[in-house]
């Protein structure tokens, strides 16, 4: 990977041994009186798996929306594969190879499962037959092949989560942003998604995931970024982050909060 020409505004966490795919630098977003994301800086390297964790309302999903172009940041930059994403629309960012899933799944309920995935594959394969062939291949890989002809509206929660993943995958991304694709699943289902994500990563797809299922996070992530009140409060290897007092405090609350009168 060639490095971008403007290296002066590099995030401080830049690590030279790994080519950077995603560089988030000083990203901020405010909704009225709520500072949803504040000076957020982190990176995802080529082929890396990074987890974004934090308590509810910490700004994780807002960060995803800012990175994928669904929200415009108040300040800060997002670079993907060396390119500044400022001003790009979500579909343009997707075309560059950055795909996201939604925490609240958004299947096209009246379209069949295979049509759902074709909406994704048609972006790179204009020919509908080729797009359908690719969509079926993705469904087989994800384990939804048998449901291809059903309308997406009849799928179970676990199947809809997998469809969300299949569609994102259908756009042939270099970086996949997964927003809670495991929450609400049984242990066995979670285990299957973990295996799936690992397999995708082995194929060279970098992963940035928001997840509350800590077992999955600990086993998948090479690096964890912890958010609280929109700010990054810790970053590092899973074991280090899990034992970081600031992280424990963020999740359990500090003494003053726990002592506060009801």
């Amino acid at each position: 990977m060639t490095e971008p020409a403007t290296s002066s505004n590099r995030p401080p966490t830049f690590r030279r041994e790994q080519a950077l795919l995603l560089e988030v630098h000083n990203l901020s977003k405010r909704f009225g009186g709520l500072q949803a994301v504040k000076d957020l800086t982190f990176t995802v390297g080529e082929g890396e798996i990074v987890a974004l964790i934090g308590p509810n309302g910490a700004g994780k999903t807002t960060a995803f929306a800012l990175i994928s172009g669904f929200l415009a940041p108040d300040s800060g930059t997002v670079r993907f594969a060396g390119r500044d994403l400022r001003g790009l629309k979500p579909h343009e960012i997707n075309a560059l190879g950055l795909a996201r899933t939604f925490q609240i799944m958004r299947p096209f309920p009246r379209l069949t499962v295979v049509r759902n995935v074709m909406i994704a594959t048609l972006g790179r394969h204009r020919d509908t037959r080729e797009a359908e062939r690719r969509a079926r291949a993705v469904l087989d890989e994800i384990g939804l092949g048998a449901k291809a002809e059903l309308p997406a509206g009849v799928l179970t929660l676990a199947e809809r989560k997998r469809l969300e993943l299949a569609r994102a995958l259908g756009t042939e991304p270099r970086l996949l942003l997964l927003d809670e694709v495991m929450s609400g699943l049984t242990d066995a289902e979670t285990e299957r998604i973990v295996e799936l994500v690992r397999a995708l990563n082995r194929r060279g797809i970098a992963i940035l995931l928001i997840e509350h299922v800590m077992r999955a996070v600990m086993s998948l992530a090479q690096r964890i970024v912890v958010l609280n009140y929109g700010e990054r409060i810790a970053e590092g290897r899973p074991e280090a982050v899990a034992n970081d007092p600031r992280v424990i405090e963020a999740y359990l609350g500090d003494e003053e909060v726990t002592r506060a009168p009801a």
């Binding site: 994928s68 669904f70 629309k89 979500p90 579909h91 997707n94 075309a95 795909a99 996201r100 939604f102 958004r106 299947p107 096209f108 309920p109 009246r110 379209l111 049509r115 759902n116 074709m118 909406i119 994704a120 048609l122 972006g123 509908t128 569609r167 994102a168 259908g170 756009t171």
Partner: peptide
């Protein structure tokens, strides 16, 4: 095919590169 998906969910379409 895109139009039928746009009818169902425009935001999801945008996320899929439409």
């Amino acid at each position: 095919i895109y139009l039928t998906a746009i009818r169902e969910d425009e935001t999801a379409c945008e996320a899929l590169g439409v």
